[in-house]
């Protein structure tokens, strides 16, 4: 292996700074006792956090985001689990095309997915709302969930499933007694990350919700008004802490039972 390279190390640390510092301004200013986000800081306050308790629209939006996120993550993880299993387990004709097709929503600009779903939804005569948002989010989360699950299932020893069949279990019994418990960390990781993606998603929601705002849409609405900004900052800070926690949990789970990496992460986190 290579010796040290201090130039690259310093560069890497600067890059970390570039990634983290902007995000950290949100929590800093959320405790600042002023309506403008400028230096010097005006003093410490938790008033912006307290303000969140009284915003009924915020609570409504939060609840909408949770509903959409739970439904979208459960459906997309289920669909992705079957698909991941097909790709990791079998070789078949049309494999590449199917894979490309399922990964597409990950690549196509979200605005195009949003517009396309919008057109069909209106022309079918349905009302905009959380249902089309959930459909959009399911579509968008499936490739993410599938990537996570494929990584988990690819290292899987399929002779374990054969052993179970050999020992008298049928296909369903094998799934519940062998495959599912062993995939479980990956499944939970996929669920958590899909939930986060849906929870943070803005464009699809922006086009498809109509009047039922999700949390990002609520924030979008508030960002326009200077006097309302501080409590958006507080909300943002809470969301950042919450997502960070869930993502770290998901990464930890994803690596559980995957050899050395697992120990590495488990010790450090």
């Amino acid at each position: 292996m290579n010796e040290k390279n201090n130039t690259l190390l310093i560069y890497t640390l600067l890059y970390f700074g570039f990634l983290y510092v902007p995000v950290l301004f949100l929590p800093i200013f959320s405790f600042n006792d002023a309506n403008y986000m400028s230096f010097p800081l005006a003093g410490f306050t938790t008033e912006h956090y307290e303000e969140m308790w009284s915003k009924r629209n915020l609570h409504k939006a939060l609840w909408a985001s949770i509903k959409v996120g739970v439904v979208a993550s459960v459906i997309s993880t289920t669909i992705a689990l079957f698909a991941a299993k097909a790709f990791a387990r079998y070789k078949f004709r049309g494999q590449k095309i199917s894979y490309g097709g399922i990964m597409m929503p990950f690549l196509i600009p979200e605005i195009i997915l949003a517009v396309a779903i919008l057109i069909i939804w209106i022309n079918l005569g349905f009302k905009l709302g959380l249902v089309p948002v959930t459909i959009g989010h399911t579509l968008f989360c499936t490739p993410f969930a599938m990537l996570i699950l494929i990584a988990r299932i690819e290292g899987f020893d399929f002779s374990l499933e054969e052993a179970s069949r050999d020992l008298g279990e049928n296909a369903w019994g094998t799934f519940f007694r062998v495959s599912f418990p062993l995939y479980l960390p990956g499944i939970v990781a996929a669920l958590l990350l899909s939930f986060i993606i849906s929870f943070d998603e803005f464009i699809l929601a922006f086009f498809l919700t109509g009047s039922d705002a999700t949390l990002p849409m609520y924030m979008w609405g508030q960002m326009r008004f200077v006097q309302k900004l501080p409590h958006v900052l507080a909300l943002g800070a809470v969301i950042i802490v919450f997502t960070t926690f869930i993502v770290l949990l998901a990464f930890w789970l994803r690596n559980v039972g995957q050899g050395k990496v697992k120990k590495d992460i488990a010790v450090k986190l």
Binding site: S159, L160, E162, A163, D166, L167, G257
Partner: peptide, 13 residues
């Protein structure tokens, strides 16, 4: 029939 697998396939969980 029952089988003893090459890699034994002992359920790790």
């Amino acid at each position: 029939t029952n089988m003893v697998f090459q890699n034994y396939a002992i359920f790790p969980h």
